Measured scan of single mutants.
Amino acid sequence: SKIRITWGDKTWEWDGDDEEVWKRILEWARNLGDEELWRHVKEWVDK
């Protein structure tokens, strides 16, 4: 399956939905430097 994140007018996609993928997404969000996006992603990961 895919994980799709839409933020503003951008959309990103990742293949898979296991823990490793979420770790990569969390790292990606942090590297993007958008605090609010990172917080949202972290909330999803922690669920």
Rank of each mutant, 00 (worst) to 15 (best):
S1D: 11
S1H: 15
S1Q: 13
S1N: 15
S1A: 15
K2D: 03
I3E: 01
I3W: 03
I3V: 12
I3H: 03
R4L: 13
R4W: 09
R4H: 10
I5T: 01
I5A: 01
I5G: 00
I5M: 05
I5Y: 05
T6W: 08
T6C: 08
T6V: 11
T6H: 10
T6Y: 10
W7V: 05
W7S: 02
W7C: 03
G8H: 10
G8D: 09
G8Q: 10
G8V: 03
G8P: 01
G8K: 09
G8I: 04
D9E: 12
D9T: 04
D9I: 01
D9G: 06
K10T: 12
K10V: 10
T11L: 08
T11E: 10
T11S: 12
T11K: 04
T11P: 01
W12L: 06
W12H: 06
W12G: 04
W12F: 13
W12Y: 15
W12T: 05
W12C: 01
E13H: 03
W14R: 00
D15G: 06
D15Y: 09
D15V: 11
D15H: 08
G16H: 15
G16I: 12
G16S: 14
G16Y: 15
G16D: 08
D17S: 14
D17C: 15
D17T: 12
D18T: 15
D18H: 12
D18P: 12
D18E: 13
E19Y: 14
E19P: 15
E19C: 03
E20R: 10
E20M: 13
E20L: 14
E20S: 15
E20I: 10
V21S: 07
W22S: 03
W22M: 06
W22I: 06
W22V: 05
W22P: 02
K23R: 12
K23W: 08
K23G: 11
R24P: 01
R24T: 12
R24N: 11
R24Q: 10
I25N: 00
I25M: 06
I25H: 00
I25S: 00
I25P: 00
I25Y: 00
I25L: 06
L26Y: 05
L26C: 07
L26I: 09
L26T: 07
E27Q: 12
E27R: 04
W28G: 00
W28L: 02
A29W: 02
A29E: 00
A29D: 00
A29V: 05
A29Q: 00
R30D: 05
R30Y: 14
R30F: 14
R30W: 15
R30H: 13
N31Q: 12
N31F: 10
L32F: 15
L32P: 01
L32C: 07
L32M: 15
G33H: 08
G33F: 08
D34G: 06
D34I: 10
D34P: 04
D34M: 07
D34A: 04
D34V: 07
E35V: 04
E35K: 07
E35L: 07
E35I: 05
E36I: 04
E36T: 06
E36S: 08
L37I: 07
L37N: 01
L37Y: 03
L37K: 01
W38I: 14
W38H: 08
W38D: 02
W38Q: 08
W38C: 07
W38E: 08
R39N: 13
R39D: 09
H40W: 15
H40M: 14
H40Q: 14
H40C: 09
H40D: 06
H40R: 12
H40T: 12
H40S: 15
V41Q: 00
V41K: 00
K42H: 07
K42S: 13
K42G: 03
K42L: 13
K42Y: 10
K42D: 04
E43N: 12
E43D: 14
W44F: 15
W44R: 04
W44L: 15
W44T: 05
W44H: 06
W44I: 15
V45L: 10
D46S: 11
D46W: 04
D46H: 05
D46K: 09
K47M: 13
